[in-house]
Amino acid sequence: MSGLLRYSRNFTGALHRQVRWYASPVSPAGVDDAVDKLKTETNRLSQIAKKFWDQVSVGENVQNGKLVIQLDKKPVRTPLGNHLAVDKDRKILARLLQKEWSNISHGSVKTHALPLTSLIARCIDLEAANAEGAHPDLKVKIGGNRNELSNSLLRYLDTDTILVFSPRDELEGKLRAAQDDMYLPIIGSVEKFLSQHSDKPISLQILDADLHGLRGNAQKPETLAAARKFLDSLSAWDLAIFEKTVLTTKSFICGILLLQNKASTDPAKGLQYTMEDIARAATLETIHQTERWGEVEDTHDVDKRDIRRNVHAAAIAAYKA
């Protein structure tokens, strides 16, 4: 009887684990979002549109030595109920998270206002859901099944921005020249990089508008296999960052570039790029088209900032000293 009671309590506990508003999963996979109807501090914030805390601080967890972001001494929690905490040697990241929360001046906060918090929360939750012995429900809740994540991310390699070339007669060939200049070296280095995960040399399928016209692009099975191996080699934390980068830049290759430059101290040869380069590579066509036709207000300017803030947030989260 007591066993049954305990079981039912566990069950309701799992049901009551709340998904909070600021870290809605970015995964395109179907995610059950009926869970965020519960009364929690963060849901309260989005509903009553009023700041309900005075002090934002960074505290230290005595047990694991992590730095925890706190609102009035209570830890901020991620969608799965984990503490929003970072390693002790990442003081500046903790500081930035604290800043994000203390700079909220009004209650009606939207998800877009806390990009770093939502990314770090995703990292923490993905790690927790994929830890050994974690409840399988957790993965479903945040769309954290690594196999499904890989599947959806691999689709971005087929139609990667970096692999699509515009016709030579467009914009007097300026755009094509810039693409050749920027993309070709990246493609060469990424092919070499992916070959490490395969026994055959990898060649990426590009889509040249002059040769192939208007059609979709698809990679060869061995390329996809190598890319999948690369994804499997990533830690859960890095995978969350990779996901964010790919969804922002619409480019699998940009994800590789970002992780190579930030998550490893020794980026592979030919893959050294700054974050601005990555953002530029992802929006090269937009840059050239707006140069010719002009910017549309509330579209190009907002997108430009959006991509850059997300790429830089991912870079900050990925950084390993």
């Binding site: 877009h112 907002v302 900032r305 959006d306 850059r308 830089h312 947030a313 870079a315 900050i316």
Partner: peptide
Amino acid sequence: RHIQHLEDIAAFVDNQREYDELIERY
């Protein structure tokens, strides 16, 4: 690398602020 990291932070803060300003303007 560390200096680059700090520059990324400055760029992040700047872009986030400009993004917020644009969203508010529109």
